[in-house]
Design a protein around this nucleic acid. Structure first.
Length: 513
RNA sequence: GGCCCGUUCGUCUAGGGGUUAGGACAUCAGAUUUUCAUUCUGGUAACAGGGGUUCGAUUCCCCUACGGGCUACCA
């Protein structure tokens, strides 16, 4: 068994898509489990689609997600450079090798020539209008031209591409780790361009050459590459690298939550959830797209969610840490069908992972939020708040969003509860409570509870009748964390203040002005 | 159009020739809770259709339908 070496090879054409994160994750899990190497290679062979900042974005995203790179653009390594644009000359050399061996050829056809050919075939009712073993003999290339003519054209600087010479017949078989055997007739393949007229390799050439050179053992990538996998196999054969050919695993795609099709950026805008790991601003349009990080997702939750989209451990376990995923992961438990992206499940994972955090960690989140808004909060208070808010939140920012009343008098009160529950009895209870609370020492939840019970009992009321309106008086809302703990955190003085001011305001709301 | 891949509750999925087809999210109901959330209990809900093979098919085979991907000098 050879040393496991896998690569994640995105092209820097924009923000890293969440599907890309999953592909990277599966590569990473496999690498770690097999004690192999995880490589990050940047496939920037299309200078037209290059987007500045995209590479840095990819690196930062992977870092945030906890996907560690052993070798690659930033990490370096024995096979540097890891950016294909910096390896340009290399590919040309290999392409020429193919030409020499008769597996590839020069083609001088212009855009118009190609179009004319496709038109002609279309009119003739041919199914695939491609540059292939039947059409190539009608085109301008080194197969139809004499070697003299070819040489002259190249000498003269005529633009040319190098195309793969696909065999006229035969079947190409490939063994996919997820899909089993996949066979394609050679006649279905076209003579793909290997080197473009700008001298850059196409994906197919660069990918195969680099995977060979970098000694990649397993190619784990999205299903969109399955149709061209036979072509890659053919390339390995043409180079004589069959023995070194990696094993392939083509992952099922991530689909739109509703309707059909691949998940795309548009869905994010349309349905209101992120599709990128980090917030991304398109440098060309200035358009901003939401990120999972900024939306409040924990990286471990996103990873957990993504891992289970297309793979399952077979044990029923749903909650995983990265280490657990590494232990349990296996390629043969990856499904074949595309998976719809369900943001609700992602939220659930976030909630679960948030629950798994210690109160101290959560307090850290809260402290950062209060700092940003310049609210006063001690670490002790933050921890107390977090301990009672913990079970109620799905996102860290909800700590403050749902707990704003810990830091100031409510700006408004739940009108429905006030009109329903505010009455002379409640007013009497409030007055009594305000006085009684003064003597509660220490001012803790238990003692407060006792006082509330005593006050209501003395007046002959049921606690249930005033507790809800009490909550509204303190927090403004009809729901929230444990009320007695809330009072403890707010403290005696502030509690009594809010009681007094509530009595005033509630009475006012009773008399219509 | 052609080629390739796929199809179990609304969603993610387990399972596999004979099962009450299991779990999770979502949803609904009940319990707990002063309330909300949590938690607990329970419910609704699926093998795309048609042919084979077989004593028996959701499971194996074929066809159809549907979905997806690819079909660039993009990756």
């Amino acid at each position: 068994m050879r040393q496991v070496r896998v690569r994640f090879a995105p092209s820097p054409t924009g923000a890293l898509h969440i599907g890309g994160v999953r592909t990277a994750l599966y590569n990473y899990l496999f690498a770690r489990q097999q004690h192999g190497t995880m490589i990050l290679r940047i496939e920037d062979t299309d200078q037209n689609r290059f987007v500045p900042g995209a590479e840095a974005y990819i690196i930062e995203s992977l870092k945030w997600a906890g996907i560690e790179i052993d070798e690659g653009v930033e990490a370096g390594g024995p096979f540097a450079p890891y950016r294909q644009s910096e390896r340009k000359e290399l590919y040309k050399k290999y392409a020429l090798q193919l030409v020499t061996r008769g597996h590839a050829y020069y083609a001088f056809d212009t855009e118009a020539d190609l179009e004319a050919m496709r038109d002609r075939l279309k009119k003739a009712g041919v199914d695939h209008q491609q540059y292939n073993s039947v059409t190539r003999m009608t085109m301008r290339n080194s197969l139809t031209l004499s070697s003299d003519e070819t040489g002259k054209l190249i000498q003269a600087g005529t633009p040319y591409v190098i195309r793969l010479r696909v065999p006229e017949s035969g079947e190409i078989r490939l063994q996919d780790m997820i899909r089993g055997e996949v066979n394609v007739q050679a006649t279905e393949l076209d003579d793909k361009v290997l080197v473009k007229s700008d001298g850059m390799p196409t994906y197919h050439l660069a990918n195969v050459v680099d995977d060979y050179l970098m000694e990649i053992s397993h190619v784990i990538r999205g299903e969109e590459w399955l149709p061209s996998a036979p072509l890659h196999v053919l390339l390995y054969k043409s180079f004589g690298w069959e023995a070194e050919m990696p094993q392939f695993a083509h992952l099922p795609l991530l689909l739109k939550p509703d309707g059909n099709g691949k998940l795309s950026k548009r869905d994010s805008d349309r349905l209101g959830f992120p599709i990128f790991p980090l917030t991304w601003t398109d440098p060309n349009t200035g358009e901003k797209s939401a990120g999972f990080r900024e939306t409040g997702y924990l990286p471990e939750a996103l990873i957990n969610f993504l891992a289970l989209l297309g793979w399952n451990p077979g044990t029923g376990q749903e909650l995983f840490s990265m280490d657990e995923l590494i232990k349990s992961f296996s390629i043969d438990r990856i499904g074949k069908a595309g998976a719809k992206f369900d943001i609700q499940k992602a939220q659930w994972f976030n909630q679960q992972h948030l629950k798994g955090k210690s109160t101290k960690e959560l307090a850290g989140f809260l402290l950062r939020q209060t700092e940003r808004e310049q609210l006063l909060c001690t670490p002790e208070k933050a921890e107390k708040i977090c301990s009672i808010m913990k079970e109620r939140i799905a996102f860290p920012q909800e700590l403050l969003e749902h707990g704003r009343f810990f830091f100031g008098v409510p700006q408004s009160y739940d009108k429905a509860v006030v009109s329903k529950k505010w009455n002379p009895d409640a007013a009497r209870a409030f007055e009594a409570l305000e006085k009684a609370l003064k003597n509660v020492s220490p001012f803790n939840a238990e003692a407060i509870k006792g006082t509330v019970e005593k006050v209501t009992a003395d007046l002959g009321y049921k606690p249930g009748n005033i507790l809800q309106i009490l909550r509204v008086a303190i927090t403004g809302g009809a729901s929230g964390p444990d009320l007695m703990m809330t009072l403890e955190i707010i403290g005696e003085e502030e509690t009594r203040n809010r009681l007094r001011s509530a009595i005033e305001k509630f009475n006012l709301s009773l008399t219509p002005s």
